[in-house]
């Protein structure tokens, strides 16, 4: 079966985020960018499904500026077969991303779509669920285990109370949580091979989708910073301070 994986180019998770002095956003100039960590887990899961003989082809799609091709090439080096780049320099919000992905799903007709549960920039946690709703598909969000059996997929989900397993009729959408797998690193020969794998380029207009945003960001500020407090000498002093100074116990 064909598996579609969506990946997003975001600020590298190790980079310290700085708000621009004019409060219009976060400073991304000359900042290291990378594949969103949850998307890496999505790619890895697809590759493992292919290694098990469950997936026959892995198509990776990314929406974003020209540089997003780097993340598509990374996914190709990790084992995806071909790429689709929906190129735009405009801001694409979750609902519009879901509409673009729906159009790609209609063209490609994958049995399974795997996405990260959220991107670490906007922290929205929406696109996978929106895609599933727009395409009339079932969803297994926050997955920690994915088992395909015939025309169903069983997904174990990380929920607030523990774990919950659901059975979804294929085609379906899965969004990945942290413990689904541990992504591998691409080997140098595979990075070289990835450069020759096919990569289609298209625009939102080619897919017939209006990506005008519905939400406008009025300002972006740095959070109120906490001041480092005091060091206490021992446990007795700590308990004394909690009881008599902070009055929290």
């Amino acid at each position: 079966m064909k598996v579609l994986v969506a990946v997003k180019r975001v600020i590298d998770y190790n980079v310290k985020v700085r708000v621009k002095p004019d409060n219009t956003g976060v400073d991304l100039a000359n900042v290291k960018m990378a594949m969103n960590p949850f998307c890496e887990i999505a790619v890895e899961e697809a590759v493992r499904l292919k290694e098990k003989g469950v997936a026959s082809e892995i198509v990776v799609v990314s929406i974003g500026p020209k540089a997003s091709q780097e993340q598509i090439r990374t996914a190709l080096a990790l084992g995806a077969d071909r790429g689709i780049h929906v190129e735009t320099d405009e801001e694409v919000q979750s609902l519009e991303a879901a509409k673009l992905l729906k159009a790609v799903v209609e063209k490609e007709e994958p049995k399974l779509v795997i996405l990260g549960k959220q991107s670490i920039d906007s922290d929205n946690n929406q696109t996978g669920q929106m895609l599933a709703a727009l395409s009339g598909m079932a969803q297994g969000t926050f997955a920690s285990e994915v088992v395909v059996e015939g025309d169903k997929v069983n997904v174990t989900r990380e929920v607030d109370g523990g774990l919950m397993t659901v059975s979804l009729t294929l085609p379906a959408v899965v969004t990945t949580d942290l413990r689904l797998n541990e992504p591998r690193y691409a080997s140098l020969p595979n990075i070289m091979k990835a450069k020759k794998k096919p990569l289609d380029n298209m625009s939102p207009a080619d897919l017939g989708v209006d990506i005008a945003p519905r939400l406008s960001t009025l300002k972006v500020e740095a959070p109120a910073s906490r001041q480092a407090g005091v060091k206490v000498a021992d446990v007795a002093e700590l308990v004394d301070k909690l009881k008599n100074e902070a009055k929290v116990i």
């Binding site: 919000q93 979750s94 609902l95 879901a98 929205n124 946690n125 929406q126 696109t127 996978g128 669920q129 929106m130 895609l131 599933a132 709703a133 727009l134 969803q139 969000t141 926050f142 989900r157 990380e158 929920v159 607030d160 945003p213 519905r214 939400l215």
Partner: peptide, 19 residues
């Protein structure tokens, strides 16, 4: 919550609004 995060984006998509 994990429940709200799961179903609310579907609501938004079905109503064709952002969340």
């Amino acid at each position: 919550s994990t429940t709200g995060k799961d179903f609310m984006p579907r609501v938004a998509a079905l109503l064709d609004v952002a969340q």
